[in-house]
Design a protein around this nucleic acid. Structure first.
Lengths: 340, 340
DNA sequence: CTGTTAGCGCCTTCAT
DNA sequence: ATGAAGGCGCTAACAG
């Protein structure tokens, strides 16, 4: 940097100002500096800059790795976030911080490495959220805890999505529907989507005057298969099922096949919060409510930027957005059969 | 840190040494220091440390985002890498550096932010590889260019995998098989897997004395469907197909369905380099050669560590590993039909 | 085994 | 509009 200054015949500090536009610089001077930088192949050192300015231009994406690896859907958050960050010249640290390791999180934030964080896979009661709030480090969430307070978040509107799913089935004429949710363990740890979708479904189905049943289900095909059989045993009049479980839905299809039922003639299936990248692999292609994953990721970092940009000024009002899932009609939903 | 020193009644530097074990410290002293740190809730600042030591403990994962988003398989590299990095106390920056933006890459490396990089989705001729080599920054690859030279890499053994796939089909009695590859564009830009698998297939099929045909295919179901029909039109005696295209294989199943063929009775399908997370969603479950994705990711960072650890000493011999895919027998492959 | 003391490369307040 | 100078928090010689 000192070389650049000499070559451009200005003071060291002037170069600095030219770099981060913190103060007005005459046009000629600026050009000389830029040229000198160019010629010398100068690159500002991110660490030094961060050390001095307290701004690292690094964000962390906190995503706890679920038991069986992340699904397609979760990944789209990440890439959306990474893209948005890069567009603003920020780096994104992928931090597989397990929820259990609150210690790891403390370490990460304590290092002064990151300007802020985006928290994924939020639970209704999430230690990470509290910890970040106390640590005073800016962050936003993809998902939300029970009490978001004034923290910015972007989440799927589960209430709306389940209502839409119910409306879709009810519109086709179904009168008795079921809901296949995520795993019991997801529910018991208070994983947001699991709990909210369950509430939403119940509410929407009642509201629409439908008979309804629901069930939690481990995230794999055999569990899905078993779950379907049980549901049907308990409610023989079931004609349609809403599923929020990408891994289990295949098992449901297997089960239908076993009893000789055809989709959608004998039974309707609607997948929710499931990427089309997955539902299009099934046969028949599933009718699905596709989550705006990449957009949520982008929103997450955008909200974080809003906070970072306003640092020093009074804190901006938090942005809290719920996005609906988009209906993609497939070949798995149709009018209910007329069973005797 | 100065506070810690005072509290422990030692010099500033002693605290530093205690922290990074650069030199022997008496046991009592160390304990006092550790305790003082604890009591003061002291956390070393990563930036300052990096600035002074030239070691940031940050790695970058370079993955160009393919046109249609990353698949499950690619993501497993990333999480494997992130895990391995974290285990050693390193951070992993997710860098969606487009290949085209060699400029972005220069920026990243020039910033002095990263100790090294792991390059994903390597092409036979890859600008990034050359750039990193010239820039003198340590890196390893998941995949490999045409001339890996003495750069460390971990890649899938495509030769072996295609040979295994052929052996599987030949062992079942097939005499005429086809290969459905990735897209023409992937091939034309010299994407490693596409080229190597094509060569491998051809070689293995000839070696086994099988009649064989092959075809490139865009990464979507309709393309897969069309491709199958064309292959069959050209080679009516085809009884089995090896597919390295997660997105297209569904289309093949559709096509088979259209002509009334059952899998595996009328036709055999073998997916290669495809995660079971995907193939288990298909019906029938696909026989697949599953790539050791997470392991490749781990290996990638491990190799990088080997280099970083040896910095200063003479460079260690590069590690270059080819891992086979693991056969997971599904319900899509069986003996060929006896057609008249 | 422990202290002392220069920097690492940049930002930023204070003068000019 | 531009210069000069004191840190940011830590590491790593150099001395005991």
């Amino acid at each position: 940097m000192i070389d650049v200054a000499q070559r451009a015949d200005v003071a060291l500090s002037t170069v600095s100002y030219a770099l981060n536009g913190t103060r007005a610089i005459s046009d000629g001077t600026r050009r000389r500096i830029l040229q000198a930088m160019e010629e010398l192949g100068y690159r500002p050192n991110a660490l030094a800059r961060g050390l001095a300015s307290k701004r690292t231009n690094i964000l962390a994406l906190l995503f706890p790795t679920p038991e069986r690896g992340l699904g397609v859907t979760e990944m789209e958050f990440a890439t959306g976030a990474a893209d948005a960050a890069r567009e603003r010249g920020y780096h994104l640290i992928l931090s597989p911080s397990e929820l259990r390791n609150v210690h790891d999180l403390e370490q990460l934030t304590g290092q002064g490495l990151i300007d802020g964080a985006i928290v994924m896979e939020v639970r209704l009661d999430d230690e990470r959220v509290e910890l970040l709030a106390q640590a005073g480090i800016p962050f936003s969430m993809i998902g939300r805890p029970r009490e978001p307070g004034s923290i910015s978040y972007a989440d799927i509107d589960f209430e709306q999505t389940t209502r839409d799913a119910i409306a879709h089935l009810a519109g086709l004429g179904h009168r008795c529907v079921g809901f296949l949710n995520h795993s019991p363990s997801a529910f018991s740890v208070g994983y947001g989507p699991t709990v909210r979708a369950a509430d939403g479904f119940r509410h929407a189905a009642s509201g629409a005057g439908l008979v309804h049943v629901e069930r939690l289900c481990d995230d794999n095909a055999p569990a899905g298969r078993a779950a379907f059989h049980e549901l049907r045993a308990g409610s023989p009049e079931l004609t349609g099922l809403v599923v929020m479980n990408e891994r289990a839905v295949v098992g449901v299809i297997d089960a239908l096949d076993e009893i000789g039922w055809t989709v959608p003639d004998d039974f309707s299936l609607v997948s929710i919060v499931s990427s089309t990248q997955v539902t299009e692999m099934m046969r028949p292609k599933l009718t699905t409510f596709e989550p705006p994953s990449a957009e949520l990721g982008r929103l997450g970092v955008q909200m974080l930027f809003d906070q970072l940009d306003a640092e020093g000024d009074d804190p901006p009002p938090p942005t809290q957005e719920l996005l609906p899932c988009r209906l993609v009609v497939g070949g798995s939903s149709g009018p209910p059969p007329r069973r005797s």
